[in-house]
Amino acid sequence: MAMLSVNNLQVHYGMIQAIKDVSFDVNEGEVIALIGANGAGKTTILHTISGLLQPTRGNVMFEGKDITKIPAHKIVSLGMAHVPEGRRVFAQLSVLENLKLGAYTRKDKTEMEETLKMIYQRFPRLEERKNQVAGTLSGGEQQMLAMGRALMSHPKIILMDEPSMGLSPIFVEEVFKIIRDISAEGTTVLLVEQNAKKALTIADRAYVLETGNIILQGDAKKLMNDESVKKAYLGE
């Protein structure tokens, strides 16, 4: 059984249908890439999975449980974290305060302190700047913070929405390296990217989204060699 499955999802913004009929699965331990052009509906899908949006039809199952109607703030403690598009760190709060908010639903303080230590090991820059206000970090550092903040909830699955967007090449490399590390440590990853090449390199499987429908799916390596994918998304 898949860890996360999205079944016949339809999502509307008022009269506009952003997601027409989308189904896909994420198995435990996988890195799944969801690629597609701007406006294809990638963010809408992630928001619907994590409960910020309600679908008009279809459902989202997580570890065998229907989470479609569960409000976003209760989904976190089921083991799902979401690194939103545009990072959305709390700009007026310090780095440490942001990280602590990531662990908002956790009760055990000593466990939380341990996670914090691990996150500081992975992102030494965050420890150096723990008392700095998040709004004054660079884009790349904010992305690290957004990822660290999501990891603070100790998730089983992490959804990431365009983590490399707008970053310098060095940070892009770093972001993808971190995603690999997170995956290697056993966390399942659902990655939304416009940087299809990089996403397909680290993904196990991928889905290609076009105007609210999945038009292609399969093994990431195979998709990378697919002529239509090469043309439309890899710029070859």
Binding site: H73, A81, E97, L101
Partner: peptide, 19 residues
């Protein structure tokens, strides 16, 4: 802290588990 988070970004606060 949840209040500050909500005042900055309701959606992001919700994603942290804040009601």
């Amino acid at each position: 802290q949840a209040m500050l988070a909500v005042s900055e970004d309701k959606g992001a606060a919700e994603l942290m588990g804040v009601n």
